[in-house]
Structures are given as structure tokens and as C-alpha cells.
Design a protein around this nucleic acid. Structure first.
Lengths: 151, 151
DNA sequence: GCCGTCGCACAAGAATCTTGCGTGAGAGGC
DNA sequence: GCCTCTCACGCAAGATTCTTGTGCGACGGC
């Protein structure tokens, strides 16, 4: 589906404040509240907006240890196998197959180092796994996680 | 600030649906709508909830190329310097200093390979940069970006 | 010129938010 | 034991927002 300029600006406002009133959004993009609501409904049902959520301070919620894990698999391993192995761990917050030496990169949130180690251990014990390489986050510098809306 | 069991369940509901009605949340956690609102207000003002937002399909919005970039800096480089250099690029969606050989890992969203290359190029031209190592995402497997709420 | 489509603003009833108020449970002092 | 203070809750009502039906104007095809 194609987004026009108005849709992009609406999404931009919602990225900043997902609870903005339709009237508030309308003021910023130059539409009436019902017009904004109809566009938002359309963006949701078309899949451009996949949901509404909250941003949470990870440390307050109990995730104080964070890291990236590169995984190296046997040559015959499919992305679907990796997904299956990785998706059952709620600590894995993001996972992607990638170019380069590693087969995939995982982003993991855990409550402490011990917990982090356990998760990596369990993933490393999958039959298709060859080895893993972990990098622990020292300090988070940027955390946008969504990107802004290009014009 | 300390979250009790009720707060955690409220945050859990909001992570799934950030626009859930206070009454709906109340039904799921066993509170009245006003009680939920007061707790959510408290979670927001205490910083446990840092904001409300939407989840967006990156491809629809125009971000179709994604990758991780490890950066290697001169020994004397501070995290603040890295932040300053990296924060001005909206394409950098997340950045952290890490343990291991690399000094930091960046997560980048771009509109295409050319765009991705330009961003990496600009970052690589910072005076403190020694080298970069990019890994392009082939297929996103998991995309939770928030983690669930531990008990 | 005419008609169909699309997207908008307006308006009113429905739903939700928001706030003040009274109550009950638990902690601590006397 | 009893008192009080605090805290979080539910209830209720006014304010705000949502939601949907309606009509209008712009645009494009016939």
C-alpha cells in the first residue's frame, strides 16, 4: 500500500506519541479528527501500522543486561530452523539472518549476566549450532528502535 | 521505583496493545478503570513507561534495507564522542558500546543499499574512526524489540 | 454536461477519560 | 487494645474524546 504525505505525517506524530488524540493529530497535519481516525484505521487494517505499544525503561522492568550474539550454524541450516530455535526464548528481542561470516545476529535482553549466559547456553545447545560469539552492551547510546519517516 | 505484580501485568497488557482502554486493562488485571489509570499515570511520571508509540511495518514506511555495523575507534575515543557522531543520523536506530573487539555496534535502517552505504560512509569519515564492519540483514526472523515482562 | 468515486468537514449519540469523594486495610505510636 | 496516618481502591458524574452517519465539493471518465 502507498502512503501519501499526510499518512507519513500522521505516522510521524504517532511514533512520537501513540496516544495523541485524533484532534491533536489533526491540528498538526491539517485534518479534522474524523478524517485522521479514518486514515489511522486504514493504516492499521492495511498493515502499515502493525500495532500500538508502550516504550518501557528496560532497567525498571528488570532487563539490566543486554547483548548481541552472532551465531554460526551448520551449512545446511535454514532460516526457519533458526527461527524455531530462537523464537521460544522471550529474551531474544530481535533476530536476523545476515551477510558475512555469521549466519544470524540475535539481540538479547536478560536480567543479569548469569541469565544472559543461560540463554546463550540453551541456544548454543541446538543441534545445528556450531558456535556463538557474544558481545555484551556496555552502555546504550541511541535507542530509537523505529526510525523516523523519510519524505 | 519498584513495580509490583499488578504494575507488571498492566505493562504487559500495554506492550501488546498500547491503546487498550483502562477498563479493558482493568478486566485483565482485576482493577477498576480509575485504579488502572492512576497506576499508568504513576508509571509514566516515574519513568517506568517512557512513552506511547506505534509499531510500523518498516518496508511500508520506506525502510527496506537493514544492517548491523561494528565500529572500531582510536583507543582514546569516549562513548560520548561516538554518541555525538552517531546521533545525528536518523538512520541509526540503535547504538551501544560493547565488549569484544569492536567498540560499538550500530543498528541501521535505510531505504536501499546505496543509502545504507552512504550512512556508513559518513560515519566512517569521523576523525576517530579506524574501521567498520557491516553485516546486512537478509531476513528478519524475530522482531519484538521490547522483551516481555519477567515475574 | 453528467455521473461515479473519493476524501473531507460537520454533528450527535456512545464510549471513554478524569477527578473528587468516601471506605477499608495495613503500619506504626502510645 | 486503640488510635491515627497513609495508601490504594471503587463509585459516580461531568468533561472530553471517539465513532458513525450525512452531505458537500473536487476530480476524472464517458
Amino acid at each position: 500500500m502507498q502512503l501519501d504525505q499526510l499518512d507519513r505525517r500522521i505516522v510521524g506524530v504517532l511514533l512520537e506519541d501513540g496516544r495523541a488524540t485524533f484532534a491533536q493529530i489533526g491540528d498538526r497535519v491539517g485534518l479534522s479528527a474524523p478524517a485522521v481516525k479514518r486514515r489511522v484505521d486504514r493504516l492499521v487494517s492495511s498493515g502499515a501500522i502493525t500495532g500500538f505499544t508502550v516504550r518501557v525503561d528496560p532497567s525498571v522492568v528488570g532487563w539490566s543486561t543486554e547483548g548481541y550474539v552472532e551465531i554460526y550454524c551448520r551449512g545446511s541450516t535454514s532460516p526457519a530452523e533458526i527461527l524455531k530455535a530462537v523464537d521460544k526464548h522471550p529474551e531474544v528481542v530481535s533476530a536476523s539472518t545476515v551477510t558475512g561470516e555469521a549466519d544470524a545476529i540475535l539481540h538479547i535482553l536478560a536480567s543479569d549476566i548469569r541469565h544472559f549466559e543461560q540463554v546463550v547456553e540453551r541456544i548454543a545447545s541446538e543441534p545445528f549450532m556450531v558456535r556463538t560469539k557474544s558481545e555484551l552492551v556496555l552502555s546504550p547510546l541511541v535507542r530509537r528502535e523505529q526510525g523516523s519517516i523519510p519524505d
